[in-house]
């Protein structure tokens, strides 16, 4: 008799284990639990039917039933855990996103290349102890020319074709009037160490290398005992800071009415490093700025006794530096403000 029960129990267990292995989702697993372990399950039927058995058999069967039930419950739990793990894995897999889509955009603007150059140059000179000052764009003939030793009807005026507003007023042709204005403001105090960035205007037709409006950065140093070699040393320090430690400067004699001696200042060509290329027309050098020792007449007219004080001044074009630095071949690109051009200056 008990063999029949045992056999039946064995069959229930085996069949249940087999069907458990076949459950494929949590619903099937739940159905399996109800069918195998629920109130109407064969196991429960057997438990109920146990009352009719002899006490000895009942105990034996009870133990057997319990063992099978526990075994099946254990199997169900691990199957459930296994299935949950699988389903979680599936869900996570479903949640996969396209990581190659762009991130939510943080808009990046761009500083104009001329401003970039100006700020960089300001930083270099400020680190050398220079102050940065600015001046008016509408100037008087007096400051723009006369006080810079360029009298009326002087041929040197041809060097800078001028936009006049009236007989006496004009758009400044250079930032040099700020040499005089600075000396006047300092009223004889020394040392003077300033740079002056600003827009300037000349009556030039706009083309690839000329612009009727452009940007200069003026420099002025005045004190007792300033030497021409200090001019060279300062500009060399500047050149190294701007274009790298291997830079050198070369001075060439030139003429500006407000400096004496005057010079053009060349740097080692930034394109070829001095080997000679198209940018430097094979010379290995590129002209970068004009400079000189402040003309004694300019010092005297600005209230600094030229017998006691000396100084140097220089003026460079921000456009020229920007063009060299960023490989810009046409100055008009700097004033066209095409965003396809400007956005190339996004990275700081």
């Amino acid at each position: 008799m008990s063999d029949t029960w045992r056999h039946e129990l064995e069959t229930i267990r085996n069949e249940a284990m087999a069907s458990l292995a076949n459950t494929s989702d949590s619903k099937a697993l739940n159905d399996w639990r109800i069918e195998v372990l629920g109130k109407k399950s064969a196991l429960s039927q057997m438990s109920k039917a146990m009352g009719s058995l002899a006490p000895e058999d009942r105990r034996a069967l009870g133990e057997a039933l319990n063992r099978v039930r526990q075994e099946l419950e254990q199997a169900w739990r691990s199957r459930q855990a296994e299935m949950e793990a699988k389903e979680k894995a599936l869900r996570l897999e479903r949640e996969r996103i396209d990581v190659t889509l762009p991130g939510r955009e943080v808009p990046l603007g761009a500083m104009h290349p001329i401003s970039r150059v100006i700020e960089e140059i300001e930083d270099i000179f400020m680190s050398l102890g220079f102050s940065v000052v600015e001046g008016p764009e509408v100037e008087t003939d007096h400051y723009n020319f006369e006080l810079l030793n360029i009298p009326k009807d002087h041929p040197a005026r041809d060097m800078q074709d001028t936009f006049y507003l009236t007989e006496e007023w004009l758009l400044r042709t250079h930032t040099s009037p700020m040499q005089v204005r600075t000396m006047e403001r300092m009223r004889g105090r020394t040392p003077i160490r300033v740079i002056v960035p600003g827009r300037v205007y000349r009556r030039d037709e706009d083309d690839a290398t000329h612009s009727h409006q452009f940007t200069q950065i003026e420099g002025l140093v005045v004190d007792e005992g300033i030497r021409m070699s200090d001019l060279k040393g300062t500009l060399e320090a500047f050149a190294k800071a701007l274009f790298g430690p291997s830079q050198r400067v070369r001075l060439r004699p030139s003429y500006f009415p407000f400096t004496e001696p005057s010079c053009e200042v060349d740097l080692v060509c930034v394109s070829c490093g001095g080997a000679g290329c198209r940018t430097c027309k094979g010379t290995g050098w590129i002209e970068i700025l004009g400079a000189g020792m402040v003309h004694p007449r300019v010092l005297d007219m600005s209230g600094y006794d030229s017998a006691r004080y000396t100084g140097f001044a220089f003026g460079l074009g921000a456009e020229r530096i920007a063009m060299l630095r960023y490989g810009i071949s046409d100055i008009r690109m700097l004033y066209q403000n095409d965003l396809r051009f400007l956005r190339q200056f996004r990275h700081a």
Partner: peptide, 25 residues
């Protein structure tokens, strides 16, 4: 004198000026 002697003979020297905080605007 400088241009006939040669600007290239002029050395690059440092100014001896007091250390001052720049008074930029």
């Amino acid at each position: 004198v400088a241009r006939l002697y040669g600007y290239h003979h002029i050395p690059a020297t440092s100014m001896r000026l007091p250390v001052e905080a720049p008074e930029s605007s």
